[in-house]
Design a protein around this nucleic acid. Sequence first.
DNA 1: TAGATTGTTAATCGATTAACAATC
DNA 2: TAGATTGTTAATCGATTAACAATC
Lengths: 238, 238
Amino acid sequence: MSSEELAAAAGVNSAKLRKDFSYLGSYGTRGVGYDVEYLVYQISRELGLTQDWPVVIVGIGNLGHALANYGGFASRGFRVAALLDADPAVVGSSAAGLPVRHMDELEEIVETQAVSIGVITTPPGAAQQVCDRLVEAGVTSILNFAPTVLTVPDGVDVRKVDLSIELQILAFHEQRKAGEEPDRGDSVLDRAPGPVRAAAAKLRRAAGAATAAKAEPAGKGGKPPKGTDGELSAVMPA
Amino acid sequence: MSSEELAAAAGVNSAKLRKDFSYLGSYGTRGVGYDVEYLVYQISRELGLTQDWPVVIVGIGNLGHALANYGGFASRGFRVAALLDADPAVVGSSAAGLPVRHMDELEEIVETQAVSIGVITTPPGAAQQVCDRLVEAGVTSILNFAPTVLTVPDGVDVRKVDLSIELQILAFHEQRKAGEEPDRGDSVLDRAPGPVRAAAAKLRRAAGAATAAKAEPAGKGGKPPKGTDGELSAVMPA
DNA sequence: TAGATTGTTAATCGATTAACAATC
DNA sequence: TAGATTGTTAATCGATTAACAATC
């Protein structure tokens, strides 16, 4: 398949696609194109998706359960090495066919199964303590679903998942839809500088058959800079 | 507080911070700085976080439960208007203090409570059908947790949450850590072009006291382009 | 008024893309 | 060999940042 076809399918520029691929190596054939299966394998390998990654999930409430059952993990090479909880009422139950084990077994599990990634789905109050214990046991990457910022020593990676962020992005666009004029004629945004105009265009596409204009009261104080209409293109994804 | 102080706290450049703020309006005072409380209010308003956003959650399994209980929603102005499920065994139970209602009540709920945002936490097989029904009922923004790509008409926004993406990012860095030389001296990356060097530096920071080098077998075929060491800076966040 | 800091312009930097030599 | 398409260079475009006039 040619870079042109791949780029069309992915919705990107073909030169960019070729340049990005070139960072991984030289996996195409001039005059022919790319072998898709081979390409997928090479990218997967570079991303670490061909490896087996044992993970422990700590805190088996609803979210812990949901993650244990999540099909997307297994298909990307993540294997649940153990489900752990500190609550004796939960320990011994099972989720996704695995027994919930006690936190005290953490160290042994991490060591014997060479676990380097831990997932925290505890209540916020317990998260830092669990995190410290994971790190102490030898875990060097932590995925945190608890709404707390975790402190870790150098050499440990933490990523925080905020389940409401995507909802906030939707609400932002929803708010803009409500403010859109049903009339699709010229707008001050068409005369705005490049990035603002692009963002406005995307917005219009998204808004489609515009919803009824619900007037939003103008904020007190301060007027938006000329030609931007208070556009948040710089901080909000389309 | 001055843009300099705010920028230091946020870890960004102060000129960028002022420029970004200027897209929203003129909320600072020359010679003085920014009134933080006022600024927070203005940004929140622009992002739509000062509005009340009623949402429906469809599919009350573990993930639906977890989201219904998620504290981050309420604090950002999201109000659960209803929990819905098609399974009679689940309808009538309660989650987060709310009753689970039957899918058939969807249309009435969306209309009477002016719901414009729907959250889908059903199994993948049911997601498109649920999505169609939400759209039909008048929902114009959909947050999809089911591992399926949804098709929607123009004017409807969809965002898909893949719970394994952050885990994949951690695994990517974990893989790089394992390949890092404990010796922190010069590396081919220090002679690489700008973006690659920057990514390498970030990686080193993250890796901290390097973990023991676990040799990763080189992939068959194709060698990385000169000076990049197969770096994925273009596609992977730090 | 003198000092401080914003909002914005202009310069710089980096990322994207057009163009093309290399080569299948 | 002629046609096609990669991998990469150079040009373009856009985003970041330094600098500074405006002004509190």
